[in-house]
């Protein structure tokens, strides 16, 4: 596997928040992730990129403990997730935040209640303190003014920003983002990208971003892992990735229609399908 950032690896081995070693995972007999090795340094913003269905969201779910590795180990904040009890897993998750692909806001709660949800559930803070904290979180994403609206009244970009405020409500150590840029207009996309970077630095958190939006991600992340067909095919800093001559990375970065990922799905010959006699 081509390693485009060996300097980075030598640094992260000291202070890794996430360490995945020789991970194999599959649904039924179909192996989705094969021999994954991945490390995320504390305080960094790391992107996991790849085509739709390549296994990157599965990888994120394994890091969040929603799925269990079949082989290999997943270690988050120094704890092995394999065979962890539910109470231990919940204790660990209190230190994590996750933003889902379309926000996953609770549709029966207002924007304010969505952001305050974890504070109400997990803390014994007074209502006035919760109110102040919630408004600060909403202010950080520029949406203090929509606190009384319901999620159905928000645009896609606004819902994503509220979800970001909710994911950071308890100042998590690790924030996981599942396709945060999917379906956004260019302005919302830029806003979300900048917020992800700013919040990560302001909170002193570590973030893992699963995405296939190359240009926006490369602007904000520290390190990139490329996944293809369940295998990490390349890794490196954004500069190293941009300069990569690996055919898959090149095709992905520049959005070329044909390359290692063929344009045509495997099929019989055209002449055969049209019932023509091949010459």
């Amino acid at each position: 596997m081509p390693d485009l950032g060996s300097r980075h690896v030598s640094v992260v081995s000291v202070t890794n928040l996430v360490e995945i070693t020789e991970l194999n995972f599959g649904y039924g007999s179909r192996l989705v992730l094969k021999g994954i090795n991945l490390t995320v340094r504390k305080g960094s913003l790391v992107a996991i990129m790849g085509l739709s269905g390549c296994g990157k969201t599965t990888l994120l779910r394994l890091i969040g403990g929603q799925l269990q590795a079949h082989e290999g180990s997943v270690m988050v904040a120094g704890q092995h997730l394999n065979n962890m009890s539910q109470s231990d897993l919940y204790a660990l998750r209190r230190r994590l935040g996750m933003m889902f692909q379309f926000g996953a806001l609770f549709t029966d709660l207002s924007v304010y209640d969505n952001v305050a949800f974890q504070m109400h559930e997990h803390t014994s803070l007074s209502e006035s303190v919760i109110r102040d904290l919630t408004l600060m979180k909403l202010n950080a994403v520029g949406l203090r003014g929509v606190q009384s609206l319901m999620p159905s009244e928000l645009s896609g970009g606004m819902a994503r920003r509220v979800a970001l405020a909710r994911a950071t409500a308890l100042d998590p150590e690790l924030i996981l983002y599942d396709e945060p840029f999917a379906g956004l207009d260019p302005i919302s996309l830029g806003v979300i990208g900048q917020l992800i970077r700013r919040l990560n630095d302001a909170l002193g958190a570590t973030s893992i971003l699963v995405t296939h939006d190359v240009q926006e991600s490369l602007k904000i992340v520290d390190y990139v892992y490329f996944v293809s067909e369940g295998v990490i095919v390349a890794q490196g800093t954004p500069e190293q990735i941009r300069a990569s001559t690996l055919p898959f990375v090149h095709q992905f970065i520049w959005g070329e229609a044909d390359g290692p990922m063929p344009f045509h799905y495997p099929a019989k010959t055209m002449a055969n399908d049209l019932g023509l006699r091949e010459v």
Binding site: F100, A104, H122
Partner: peptide
Amino acid sequence: GLMKATEQLSAMEMMAIN
């Protein structure tokens, strides 16, 4: 069912709420 389809239940799980 809709809470499940829109990942609200997963979001709750990830917030350490059963």
